[in-house]
Each structure stands twice: as C-alpha cells, then as structure tokens.
Amino acid sequence: MTLTAAQGTMLASVATSAVGMWLALSPRAMRLRIIGAAIASAALVVAVTALDGPRGALDDQILFWLFAGSALVSSVFMVTSREPVYAALWFALATLGACGLFMLLSAPFLAAATVIVYAGAIIVTFLFVIMLAQQTGYTFYDQRARTPAAAIVASWLLLGALLWSYQQWQNEPVNVAAGPALTADANPNPFSQPDSEATAHSMRALGRSLFGDYLYAVEIAGTLLLVAAIGAIAIAPRRAEGTI
C-alpha cells in the first residue's frame, strides 16, 4: 500500500502527538509536561491539516470554526480543570459547541434535543453529584495518571483510525454496494421515504425515519431506559411504613 505525502504526514504527526502526550502525563517535572503538551497539540494541528477544510459559504465556515473550536477548547479545559464543578461546566460548553455543529448539519431537532437532555439534565445531574460529594480540588485519585501508556496507545490508535478513514472518505466517496452492511441500504421502509427533497431534512423526515427505518432500535432503547428506571426504583432504599 503506497502512502501519499499527506497520509504519511498525518500518520507521523499522530505518532508524534502520542509521544508528546505521554510526556505530558509524566508525573515528574512540570517543564516536561508543558513541552509534551505543546508537542502534542502542534502535532495534532499538523495532522488535521491533511484533511480538507469545511466547504460552503463564508459565514458557514466561520460558524463551523466557531463551534468546533469552542468544542475543542472546552473539552481540553474540561479534561485539565482542577475544579470538578468547572470541569462539568466546560463539559456543558463542549456539548453546546457540538449542538451548534448539529445545527450546521441541518439537524435542528437533534441540536435542541441534545441541549435539553445532555446539557439540561445529564450535566445538571453531574453537578448535583459533584456538589454533594466532592466540592473542590483534586481528589487522591486525580493526582496523577495511573496507566498513561495504555491509555495513550488505545486513544491514539482510535484517533489515528478515525482521521485516516475520514481522510479517505474525503478523497474517495464511499462505495455503498461494496462496503460493509452497515453502510448499505437495507430494505428501505416506504413509510420512511421523504416526500420531497425539500422536506428531506425536516422534522417530519426525522420522525418518519426514526419510527420507520429504525423502529426496532428506538423501541429497544426505550425498553433499556425502562429497565434502568425500574432498576433504580428497586435499588432505592425503602421508605417508612405506610408509603409506597
């Protein structure tokens, strides 16, 4: 398999950033950590330049960089923040950045639903637990990384694979018929076909697709949540006599 220059650059920079990240997790000198973080971020930026940027109108591109950049920065701060409450709040900001990206992809309902469920309920639950359990500062298990090598190898392999396949998709469109069954069109449900191109990205199309093509997935996910709710009720401690 021959590598183009862009692909080779990308692989090399991903490997470099893995090494830099390993340095950044070092428990020894602070200077080592700073150098490692700098190497890792610089190499990742180089890796990403192998990909094409977003296409489209200028304001769409600006919005893309705004949302994507805020999501990235927020997630970096979330991972490195000393205060757990701040980490949860950076998480909320990262979620909002991702929801902005959903909006740019013509999925407004998904964006709104993610804000309601994730930023509005799940992260609030995180905040509850943090405020009741551990208010400030590092705990003893946050002081240093336990298995930095394994963690970096696993995550950077995943990152490299994602970037590689994404870069391939950008250059050659996906061959649906020759690809694995996940990307092939299974028997399309006539109920879920959009009426016209104009309504293809509307709420109506989303509803038809969810409850047409993916009905089983939706029902199984709902049953899973129901099982979790019943389990929570079963685990909860008994209340006093005379109440349910």
Partner: peptide, 25 residues
C-alpha cells in the same frame, strides 16, 4: 420560520437551571 419552535424554547429554558445551581454553589 424556526421549525422546532417549542423544542427550542424548552432547550433554552432547560439551560436556565445552571443560573440557579451556580448561584447557590
């Protein structure tokens, strides 16, 4: 012409709970 009108309102007002939580904390 916001097609998700009501859902947008719920999304945004569900973020208002952060003001309450952070204010107390």
């Amino acid at each position: 012409h916001v097609d998700i009108g009501i859902v947008f309102i719920f999304a945004v007002t569900s973020l208002a709970v952060y003001g309450v939580i952070l204010g107390g904390w």
